[in-house]
Write a protein that binds this DNA or RNA. Structure first.
Lengths: 164, 164
DNA sequence: GGTGAAATGAGTTCTCT
DNA sequence: AGAGAACTCATTTCACC
């Protein structure tokens, strides 16, 4: 848990591989980065303990799960005070449609990424779960046409993107 | 690759567990969902082949990697035509700061989630990589104060959130 | 579809460098 | 910090229900 993290080139390679596929076996990972499996396992464990790797989650196809309509909701919370805001965020995170919530600067305080079954479901979400609440001043809704994920996140000095 | 996916309660349990931790061992997963390991492995493979599970990525702490300042960039692309838009998105995805890109409805066409090293780095990103391009009409920048991830994404009929 | 045993292969520990 | 052997345990296959 040091503030100044020393990440060797090998660590960066590990982070790159695991951000592409978190289920890469330790044996394969070791071969890719040029270490013995035992040594490689050690480095991965260090990265976990240091908090650099925070978790690994399976990603799912929202449309195949019956949620083909995604949207971003821009929400203005009226008295922008902490207790109200915390309860509002907790409420959002309890909804099955919510993929992520962001607290932002700017005129709209919160941004929620949601995945809904239909336009009717989206309308219900906005009206019954958001605008019906006292603390919600305004909600703007924008649909998601398409989305892309960036490559692995790496420290600034190691700018190189690999082919894969 | 069927259009109508039949997801049993066991499949949903599997999706829930793997969205929490994609490295859950097949043995543990089988025990959790109440199947023999061999059967469980079969179901997970089916979910992969059906495209329901699209991948699994390690998540990293952007701040610990030296990127403590995250932001959303709202970008208006001027002639909103396909070839221009595709090159613009490809350019964005090639930048090491970009975590995700979304094509949206509304006045701002694109939304980019970025992780930068500093305000100066963010300024450079906006000015040198975005506003300097001919097709970019406008960029609005909002900083991210805090962010939260929603729970596992599940089909609409199975609304229940588990305790975790 | 589900199971359990058997074979294969990986994860993990330990000692040594 | 890294390596390699040895041990342990999980993954995967297959014949059967």
């Amino acid at each position: 848990m040091t503030d100044v993290l020393e990440l060797s080139p090998v660590d960066l390679e590990i982070l790159r591989v695991l951000q592409n596929d978190a289920r890469t076996s330790n044996k394969d990972l070791a071969a890719t980065v040029g270490l013995a499996p035992s040594t490689c396992l050690d480095r991965v464990n260090r990265l976990r303990e240091a908090g650099v790797i925070t978790g690994q989650r399976a990603q799912v196809d929202a449309a195949l799960l019956g949620r083909p309509l995604e949207a971003f909701l821009f929400v203005q919370v009226r008295p922008h005070r902490r207790p109200l805001v915390e309860r509002f965020v907790a409420h959002l995170l309890g909804l099955p449609e919510v993929r992520a919530v962001y607290h932002l600067t700017g005129p709209d305080d919160f941004l929620a990424h949601v995945a809904t079954t239909s336009a009717a479901d989206l309308q219900r979400l906005v009206m019954d779960e958001l605008t019906s609440r006292d603390e919600i001043a305004r909600v703007h809704t924008n649909l998601v046409f398409q989305q892309w994920q960036g490559g692995p996140l790496l420290p600034p000095e190691d700018r190189r993107r690999t082919a894969q």
